[in-house]
């Protein structure tokens, strides 16, 4: 599908940094400047309204003391384990429910029910059952990722073109082969979309869970900073949260999504929708 915007964006790839990116940098710089101006205008103590300089100093301080790298690492580990678990379980159940009417009828309603109970609501009960820390957080966050992955896998499985399945079966493929060579690749774009949605909710959920149920991590940093009236640390935590998501999204989620859609999208279009 030729589109004026697509042609333009292909041309823009020639310069190293595009106009849009320069403008983006300008936007960030403007916000920082506006922040500093607001500090001068508002003129309140740093523990109430920290200036960029205070926040930067806190960033250096936390890094020198070894606190920030460890907190970032803790959050990253918790996030990775949770998301991987949720992805695996969501994928497994999505395939199961998508391919078997029995399992779909059996598990469908109860899954829909639990989907309505957001992960945030589970944390108090998990704290009572398991206590604070890693396990509680991983269970809660894997729970978040589970549902979008499951529902999107389901959609993906249900929209597999039967022509392809029939073709494989005519060639004598076993059920396993049909699954691996037709169903999963065909459903992959949906699975990746579900993964992306889940990953987004999971990140927010992680920060919240760390505020309530952890003694380390970026969420804990934000919360603890407020408790000790170190507002500069609170802002450091918030910025680190944004940076971490930026890295996760740009360096992992989007490229993976591009790769699958670029590759399988072509196959889809050829097969006809």
């Amino acid at each position: 599908m030729t589109n004026a915007t697509n042609d333009l964006s292909k041309m823009r790839r020639r310069p190293m940094i595009s106009t849009a990116q320069w403008r983006g940098v300008l936007g960030v710089a403007s916000v920082l400047f506006a922040w500093q101006v607001s500090v001068w205008v508002i003129d309140l103590p740093a523990y109430f309204y920290p200036a960029p300089r205070d926040v930067f100093a806190a960033f250096i301080d936390l890094t020198q003391k070894g606190i920030l790298p460890e907190y970032v690492a803790d959050s990253a580990v918790r996030y990775s384990v949770s998301v991987a678990t949720g992805l695996g379980l969501g994928l497994a159940f999505g395939l199961l429910i998508g391919l078997s009417r029995f399992w779909s009828r059996l598990l469908g309603p109860i899954i829909n029910f639990f989907y309505a109970i957001v992960e945030v609501a589970w944390i108090p009960l998990l704290v009572i059952w398991i206590g604070y820390g890693f396990n509680t957080i991983v269970i809660a966050i894997a729970y978040v990722v589970f549902f979008p992955v499951l529902y999107n896998t389901l959609t993906g499985v249900q929209t597999v073109q039967h022509v392809l399945i029939n073709a494989m079966q005519t060639l004598g493929a076993t059920r396993w082969q049909v699954l691996v060579t037709v169903i999963i690749p065909s459903a992959l774009p949906n699975i990746i979309t579900g993964f992306r949605v889940g990953a987004g909710f999971a990140f927010r959920g992680l920060i919240f869970a760390e505020m309530i149920a952890a003694g380390s991590g970026i969420g804990f940093l934000i919360f603890d900073g407020a408790t000790t009236r170190q507002t500069d640390r609170v802002v450091v935590g918030m910025i680190m949260m944004g940076v971490m998501w930026l890295l996760i999204d740009r360096l992992l989620l989007r490229p993976v999504e591009q790769a699958t859609i670029v590759r399988w999208g072509l196959v889809r279009n050829q097969g006809g929708n």
């Binding site: 360096l251 992992l252 490229p255 993976v256 591009q258 790769a259 590759r263 072509l266």
Partner: peptide
């Protein structure tokens, strides 16, 4: 087609 797969996977792979 093959170059486009590689370039799409390159960023996450290099990051990892």
């Amino acid at each position: 087609m093959i170059p486009s797969i590689h370039s799409a996977w390159r960023t996450p792979l290099m990051t990892l």
